[in-house]
Lab assay of single mutants.
Amino acid sequence: ADDEVAKLLVDAYRKNDEDKLEEVKKRYNISDEQVKRLIRKVL
């Protein structure tokens, strides 16, 4: 599931889509710190 979330985050990140990032964060209840970590893992 982590990889799936990471893909969604990276996708939103690449598109610079703040709304999507927020949506994913809320849906999976993850912190900014986790977001950064997941994005770093993929990029």
Rank of each mutant, 00 (worst) to 15 (best):
A1Y: 14
A1D: 12
A1T: 13
A1W: 15
A1N: 13
D2G: 09
D2S: 11
D2F: 14
D2Y: 14
D3F: 11
D3C: 06
D3W: 14
D3M: 12
D3Q: 09
D3A: 11
D3L: 11
E4M: 13
E4N: 09
E4L: 12
E4H: 12
E4K: 09
V5W: 12
V5I: 14
V5Y: 06
V5M: 08
V5C: 05
V5N: 01
V5F: 06
V5L: 13
A6S: 09
A6M: 12
A6T: 12
A6K: 07
A6F: 11
A6D: 04
A6Y: 13
A6Q: 07
A6R: 07
K7Q: 12
K7F: 11
K7D: 07
K7G: 07
L8M: 11
L8S: 04
L8R: 04
L8Q: 10
L9K: 00
L9I: 13
L9E: 00
L9T: 01
L9V: 09
L9F: 04
L9W: 03
L9N: 00
V10C: 10
V10R: 05
V10F: 14
V10L: 15
V10W: 15
V10D: 03
V10A: 12
D11C: 09
D11N: 06
D11V: 04
D11W: 06
D11T: 04
A12G: 02
A12L: 08
A12S: 03
A12W: 04
A12V: 03
A12T: 02
Y13R: 02
Y13W: 15
Y13G: 01
Y13A: 03
R14I: 14
R14L: 15
R14K: 12
R14M: 15
R14Q: 12
R14A: 09
R14G: 05
R14T: 10
K15W: 09
K15A: 14
K15H: 12
K15Y: 07
K15F: 08
N16F: 07
N16W: 08
N16T: 03
N16S: 07
N16M: 09
N16A: 07
N16Y: 06
D17L: 05
D17E: 05
D17C: 04
D17Y: 04
D17R: 05
E18P: 14
E18C: 14
E18I: 15
E18N: 15
E18A: 15
E18F: 15
D19R: 14
D19Q: 14
D19H: 13
D19E: 14
D19M: 12
D19S: 13
D19K: 14
D19P: 06
D19A: 15
K20T: 12
K20A: 14
K20C: 07
K20N: 04
K20V: 09
L21K: 02
L21M: 11
L21S: 01
L21R: 02
L21T: 02
L21I: 14
L21V: 08
E22H: 08
E22W: 08
E22C: 07
E22Y: 07
E22I: 09
E23C: 08
E23Y: 10
E23I: 06
E23R: 06
E23F: 08
E23S: 08
E23N: 04
V24N: 01
V24E: 01
V24K: 00
V24D: 01
V24W: 04
V24I: 15
K25H: 00
K25F: 02
K25T: 03
K25I: 08
K25D: 00
K25Y: 02
K25P: 00
K25G: 02
K26M: 09
K26I: 08
R27H: 09
R27N: 06
R27I: 10
R27C: 07
R27P: 00
R27A: 11
Y28D: 01
Y28L: 04
Y28R: 00
Y28C: 03
Y28G: 01
Y28Q: 00
Y28T: 00
Y28I: 01
N29P: 00
N29I: 02
N29F: 05
N29V: 02
I30A: 00
I30S: 00
I30R: 01
I30E: 00
I30L: 15
I30Y: 05
I30C: 07
I30Q: 01
S31H: 03
S31E: 03
S31V: 02
S31W: 01
S31I: 02
S31Q: 04
S31L: 03
D32C: 07
D32E: 08
D32Q: 05
D32V: 04
E33F: 05
E33I: 06
E33H: 05
E33W: 05
E33M: 06
E33Y: 05
E33C: 08
E33P: 03
E33V: 06
Q34T: 11
Q34N: 07
Q34C: 12
Q34V: 11
Q34W: 10
Q34K: 07
Q34G: 05
Q34F: 11
V35Y: 11
V35N: 01
V35R: 01
V35T: 06
V35K: 01
V35Q: 02
V35A: 15
K36S: 10
K36I: 13
K36W: 14
K36D: 12
K36Y: 10
K36R: 13
K36M: 13
R37Y: 12
R37V: 11
R37S: 12
R37C: 10
L38K: 02
L38D: 01
L38W: 05
L38T: 04
L38M: 08
L38I: 14
I39S: 00
I39Q: 01
I39A: 02
I39F: 04
I39G: 00
I39E: 01
I39H: 00
I39T: 02
I39P: 01
R40K: 13
R40I: 13
R40T: 12
R40V: 10
K41I: 09
K41A: 11
K41W: 12
K41R: 10
K41V: 08
K41F: 10
V42Q: 09
V42L: 15
V42G: 08
V42K: 08
V42A: 13
V42M: 14
V42T: 09
V42H: 14
V42D: 04
L43Y: 07
L43E: 07
L43C: 10
L43N: 05
L43V: 07
L43F: 10
